[in-house]
């Protein structure tokens, strides 16, 4: 049975929505409910959370019983590298500056591609740094440091 349920799109979606709805409903209980006429901050999220949980269960049931479409697979390496490249930029931009953040982002992100070569990464980094300097700092006046001290 579990073999058949693996990688079914509706099963995974149903689980996600059920959990997210349940979590919302659970968390909204800590806020004041109020009455229907004078709703407190907790009421509307609770309603949404409960509806979403029910919908999630319906989707899950549909997936378990009818099967339906399979999930689309994504290479985890690409997902992680792109996310990591965003984090790297965020970590480095204020502590070291764009001179480190941009090359770090380009290297990590390009590593996810089949077309990665060192030369390409360096060329792209230099080009992007010049572009940032000219457009963002000089032209648009964004307060992003080239070199943070």
């Amino acid at each position: 049975m579990s073999f058949r349920l693996n990688n079914m799109a509706d099963v995974e979606a149903g689980l996600f929505f059920t959990l997210f709805g349940g979590l919302t409903a659970g968390l909204s209980l800590q806020y004041q409910m109020g009455t229907i006429a004078a709703m407190g901050p907790g009421m509307f999220p609770l309603i949404l959370g409960v509806i979403l949980t029910i919908l999630g269960l319906v989707i899950l049931a549909k997936g378990v019983m009818a099967g339906g479409e399979r999930t689309r697979s994504l290479p985890p390496r690409v997902v992680l590298l792109i996310t990591l490249s965003l984090m790297a930029f965020a970590v480095l931009v204020l502590s070291v500056g764009l001179v480190a953040a941009v090359p770090a982002q380009v290297f990590i992100a390009l590593w996810a591609s089949d077309h990665f070569t060192l030369k390409r990464a360096i060329a792209l980094s230099i080009g992007l740094l010049l572009f940032c300097c000219l457009v963002f700092i000089y032209f648009l006046g964004i307060a992003v440091p080239m070199i943070a001290v």
Partner: peptide, 8 residues
């Protein structure tokens, strides 16, 4: 990579 940096 250009999209990523511009977005960031």
């Amino acid at each position: 990579p250009i999209i990523l940096t511009v977005c960031c």
